[in-house]
Design a protein around this nucleic acid. Sequence first.
RNA 1: GUGAGUAUAGCUCAGUUGGUUAGAGCGCCAGGUUGUGGCCCUGGAGGUCAUGGGUUCGACUCCCAUUAUUCACCCCA
Length: 420
Amino acid sequence: MPIKAPKGTRDILPEDIYQWNFVEEKFANLCKRFGYKEIRIPVFEHTELFQRGVGDTTDIVQKEMYTFLDKGGRSISLRPEGTAGVVRSFIEHGMSSLPQPVKLFYQITAYRYENVQKGRYREFNQFGAELLGASDPAADVEIITLLALFFQDLGIKNLELNLNSIGCPKCRGEYNKKLRAYLESKIEGMCDTCKDRFHRNPLRILDCKEETCKSIVKDAPALLDNICDECRDHFKKVTDKLNAIGIIYNIDKGIVRGLDYYTKTVFEFVSRNIGSQGTVCGGGRYDGLVEECGGPPTPGIGFALGVERLLLEMQNQGIEIPKPEAPDIYIGAIGEKAELVSERLAWQLRQHNITCIKDIMGRSVKAQMKYADKIGANYVLILGDDEIETNKAKLKDMRTGDTKDITLDTLIDRLIKNKA
RNA sequence: GUGAGUAUAGCUCAGUUGGUUAGAGCGCCAGGUUGUGGCCCUGGAGGUCAUGGGUUCGACUCCCAUUAUUCACCCCA
């Protein structure tokens, strides 16, 4: 039995890689335009980091992490997301002593043990950015505008931006009391997971998809209507700024986010066209996270964007990504003498930054021509005894089919000129 | 963890009420033209019919299990 890629993983093949390179480069350039710097973090971390950072009560930590003991007996987990690792690095390298704010971006794979479906894999790719040290609503807006501009740059239209505020620990505590009071009498009518949530994290009951829970929750007090003055003011400033820029959004009181660290602003960009996993990007503010992970009190906000979903959406919208450039020239040879010359020629061409494919199969001229055609070479040069003797050859333009006599010494200059 | 669909060549798929050497198109290799691609023609390589068991004189076809895969639930990027 041949070995196949494990469930939920996939190869990105040479024929598709240009799409990935394209969005990766676009994202990196955009982040730099906003003053963000790239950071690379480990694929695995101490399990405890995610337990503390992502949250012990979350599905991600409870049932989706790839966790194992290494040979030293340490509990290690593959990162299920990027923020916790970035925050750990921020603390470990004393980045709170850097000029504030600290702006970071990354392009990572992440790992979650889940059942696979469209737009969801066990190994998946995320683009993310984290803005640390800035508590002002302007920081929230910067992160959202970065994303809006990214989608605009790529030509993606009609992604819905959903916004909510889930308050700070202070007002959320108040709200949890209110919510519990409201739900207490109705607890018997709720599903089993929600009965559990009632004690652990009643907020997430708001997000339950069970009909019975939904109907109970429908008339529950909304979190957004019960946040404290400071949080309300923060949220208003965020929406005022978005209005001023002209970024369209919905306020969605149901967004809770599955990670425990979020505070105040939470948001997501959603597509309706790419299956049931339509959240292309999710993010929010996490003012307590750095401290929770053992660093100095530091506000932060960031997001993670699912690259597989991004590409699905681009495909869905018919957005064309420029294909990679074709090889400049194919050099074929007949006979050993010509082969030696073609080796030297190819070496020189490549030194001059010209993409040159040469024959390494010793095949017939016809086979070589067919191959040159299939790889999309712009020009073909076939060398034989005649060419070596006269130092001249026919340079064939594969598009038009025209051939032109050239001397071998002028080939490089000619190709360089063609490229320009 | 749960539910449903699917599994035949590298890819996309045929394969009759169960019948003997399992097919096509595309792709790959070669030849037709021993020095010039695309079009055309000819030939070749490539299959434990997902795996294991069962029913049957006989199974790609029917039944069961397993695995993989797709979509969905939960949840999330």
